[in-house]
Design a protein around this nucleic acid. Sequence first.
RNA 1: GCCAGCGUAGCUCAGUCGGCAGAGCAACUGAUUUGUAAUCAGUGGGUCGGGGGUUCGAUUCCCUUCGCUGGCUCCA
Length: 639
Amino acid sequence: MNRYSVAIHDLPAETIESEALTAQDALKRLNVKALDRIVAVRINGESRDLSTLLEKEARLEPIYLDSEEGLQILRHSTSHVMALAVKELFPGVKVTIGPAIEDGFYYDFDYERPFREEDLPRIEEKMWEIIREDLPFIRKVVPVKDAVAFFEKESEEYKLELLRDISTEADTVSLYTQGSFTDLCRGPHIPSTGMIRAFSLTKVAGAYWRGDEKRPMLSRIYGVAFADKKSLRAHLKRLEEARKRNHAKLGPQLGLFSTHDEIGAGMVVWHPKGMMLRYQLEQFEIKEHLRRGYEMVRGPEILKTDLWIKSGHFDNYRENMYFTTIDEQSYGIKPMNCLSHMLIYSSKIRSYRDLPKRYFELGTVHRHERSGVLHGLLRVREFTQDDAHILCTPEQLNGEIKGVLEFVEDVMSIFGFPYELEISTRPEKSIGSDEDWELATSALMNAMQDSGLQYTVNEGDGAFYGPKIDVKLKDALGRSWQCATIQCDFTLPERFDLVYIDRDGMKHRPVMIHRVILGAIERFVGILIEHYAGAFPVWLAPVQAMILTVTDRCIPRATEVMKILREADVRVEGDFRNEKLGLKVREAQLQKIPYMLIMGDRESEKGGVTPRLRSGENLPFMTPQEFVERIEEDLKQRR
RNA sequence: GCCAGCGUAGCUCAGUCGGCAGAGCAACUGAUUUGUAAUCAGUGGGUCGGGGGUUCGAUUCCCUUCGCUGGCUCCA
C-alpha cells in the first residue's frame, strides 16, 4: 500500500492510500464534482490523460469538457475517431496528421482517390458506431525505434517521416490506441470514445502534405465538435447567420457591384451605389491623410519593364505581374505604387529639413493572383490601395512607424473593427543586406512595443524588400484578411539612389516606409459589408434617405422636399410610384436605407416628413430643415 | 496553380434514369390612389455558362474551356 498526497487546485493536499493511483481514481476519491464531464487533468500544471498514474505527490486540476482546453482535447480525440472510421471503411488509406482547430478538427489522409462530400455520411455513421462502443484511448510510451518498427509494419510512411523528425529530439514517443487504430500522438485524449456527443463532418478539401505544394496532395476531412448537441446546433446556426452577411451576395443585391464571366475573374464592376460608397471612403481617406501631413500624388499604371528590373520586382514578383509591349518596348502594369513615388522624391535635391516626405496615392494596381485564391471582393486581381510611401531619416523612422500605427488605430475605431497585429520577417526570396533587415525588423518591433501593442510574429512572411507589420480584420465567417500593412524598406532607396543632404552637407540615404491603412478599397468594402450586414451608417450609406409618397397627391410637395434635401447635400431618393406604402417600406428596408421619409397628405400639408428608421422606429414629424440637422449630427458622430 | 463541389429565366430553386424546359418572386401592361416589411389581373422572358464529342435525338452521358464556392498553397 502506498500513500499519495493529492491536492485539488489550491486546496490543502489530502492523503490517499492505494496500491496504485490514477488521476481519475484520485478525483473520484476526493469527491470532485461532475466526473462525467471531466476529459483530462492538469497534473502539476501539465495536461495529461485521466488514466495517468500519479506520483506520490500531485496537484490536480480537472479539465472540463466545456472549457477551452477541454473542447480542444475533445476535438482532437474526435479526429482520431474519424481516422479509425476512415481506416475501417477505406482499407489501404494512409493516415497523416489530425489536429484540433477552432470549433473542430480535421484529419489528412492519403488514399487512392480523394474523398468526396458524399463519403461523409458513411464516415459519420461509422464514427457513431465507434462512439457507441465506448472504446478507451490507451496511451503507451515506447522507444522511437519500436514506434518505427510498428509504423513500418503498418506501412504508414507519413508517420515514419514524422518519427524521423521527432527522433532528433526525443528517445521515446507516445502512441494512442482505440480499437484497431494506433496513432502517433502527444495527447492528452478523452478517456473513451463514448464521451463524444456532438460532432458533424463539414467538408472535404485537398491539402498538401506539410503545407508544401511540391509534396503530395492529401485529402482532408473537416469536422466540428462541441460538448453537447445544443452547442453544435448553436454553432451551425451562427454559421447560417454569418452566411447571410456574405458580401458577395449582399453587394449585388444592394446595387453596389457586380462581376462578370465575360470580363474575367477577379475583376469588379462598380455600380452607382457602390461607387458612392467608395467615394465616401475616399473622401474620408483624403481628409485624414491631409491632416496628418501627407501629400497627394499619382503615377501611371504602366511603367517600363526596365524600371521593374531595377526595383527588383521583375526578379522577385514577376509571376504576379502583367506585361505588355508598346512600340516594341516592354512595359509592366503596376502591382505596387512605390516606383513613381520614388521618382517624385528623386526629382530634386532633398534636405534633411524636407523630411519626412509622405506621398499618398489612391493607386489602382493589378496583380496576377492564382485563380484558386480569388474570393469575392476580398481577393481580386485589380484593386485600389490607399497607399503611401514615407521617406524619412533613420532617426525619424521609429516616430513615423508609431504615427502610422496611431493612424490605423484611429481609423479602425471609427469603423469599430477589432484587429490583430502580426509582424513578418525576412522571406527566402528577398533583396537587401542582413544588417538592413535586422535594423528594419527591430524598428517595427520597437515601434509596436513603444506603443504598447500586442503582436504575433510570422517568420519568413515579409515582402521581398523588407519586413512588415500586418493588420488583420475578420470577415463574417471569422476568416482573417490583411488590411493595413506597414513595411519598412532600406533596399529600394538604395536601388534608386535616393538621398538627402544632412546637416553635415553630405548625402545620406533615407529610409522608406510602404504603408496602407484600409489596404485595398475592394477588400475593405467587402469587410465593411459583412461587418454592417449591408446596413451602412449614415455617413457611408450610398442612399441616406428615401422619400416614400402615400398617394400621387403628395408628389409635388415630395419633389420640393427632395430638392431642399439634395441642396443640403443629403443623399436622398424618392419612391413616387403608385404603390402601397407597405410595399415601399419593405423595399427601402431590403435596401437597408437608413431613413424612410414618409409623405402623405398630413405631411404634405405641413411641408415636412415623418422619418422611419431601419429599426422600425418612427420619429416625430419634422421639417426638411430639422431632418437636415439630424443628418448633419449623424455625420458628425459618424453614425 | 492543386483537391472537391457547383453553374437551368433578373433572383431563389424544381426538373429530365437521353425524347418539344417549369414554379414563385422580379419585369412589362392594365386596374387600383393606397399610412409603415409584399393590392389584384394579364403578358412577355431561357440555344439549361461556352466549345467539342457520343447518339436518330444531349439541358441530361463524355471531353475541354470559362466562372463561382469551400479548402491547400500564395498574398492587400
